[in-house]
Design a protein around this nucleic acid. Structure first.
Length: 191
DNA sequence: ACCGCGATGCACT
DNA sequence: GTGCATCGCGGTG
């Protein structure tokens, strides 16, 4: 394992509640296309809204695996959603990526999304995967190997919190994190 | 601005 | 058969 790989593994081998807010500002690229993470949500094992809540299955197996890997699932039969697996192996914790501020490969993302506006390219978990070309093929891949690339971002920014979006169970948990005021969010954070 | 709804795959009951 | 960790469109204030 390379030094970078070891560091990345250590970063994700902590509780998702620690990792998730620290992901804000980190730059994620897939085949050189992507941008800075501006919105994520935390899901843990004791969380009725989490895919890992009812135990390991074929679909969610990657969530239970080693940290620093990508868990991809299909949502509403149409969209893909992408998570970064956290915590030590055996625990099902992951951060759902909900929005990026696109910086690299804007033209590629516009073509994949079929929209022109930069604020609409990655402003939602399904949009983000479509813009980055993430599908089931990426499920289980390691974040420290191609096609993925992670680069630390400016960490001076204040991270806003709020309730998670689009869930019915455990909707009261304040486990959504993001860059308040960013035009690239899926939805604004309540003041 | 907000609200309703249809599209569509598939894991799980 | 049911129910989504969603999105975009078309309707109404």
């Amino acid at each position: 394992m390379t030094e970078a790989a070891r560091l990345r593994r250590e970063f994700f081998a902590r509780s998702v509640h620690e990792v998730a807010p620290e992901l804000i500002g980190v730059v994620l690229l897939v085949d050189g296309v992507g941008g800075a993470i501006v919105e994520v949500e935390a899901y843990d094992q004791d969380d009725p809204a989490s895919h890992g809540f009812r135990g390991r299955t074929t679909r969610n197996a990657v969530m239970f695996g080693p940290p620093g890997h990508v868990y991809v699932y299909r949502s509403y039969g149409i969209h893909w959603c992408m998570n970064l697996v956290c915590a030590e192996e055996g625990r099902a914790e992951a951060a759902l990526l909900r929005a990026l501020a696109p910086t690299r490969g804007l033209d590629v993302m516009r073509a994949r999304r079929g929209v022109d506006s930069a604020t609409k390219l990655c402003s939602g978990p399904g949009k983000l995967c479509q813009a980055l070309g993430v599908t089931r093929d990426h499920d289980g891949l390691a974040l420290d190997e191609p096609p993925f690339e992670l680069c630390p971002g400016d960490r001076a920014e204040t991270v806003a919190t709020g309730p998670r979006i689009g869930i019915t169970k455990a909707a009261d948990r304040i486990w959504r994190y993001g860059l308040a005021g960013s035009p690239y969010l899926s939805r604004p954070f309540r003041p």
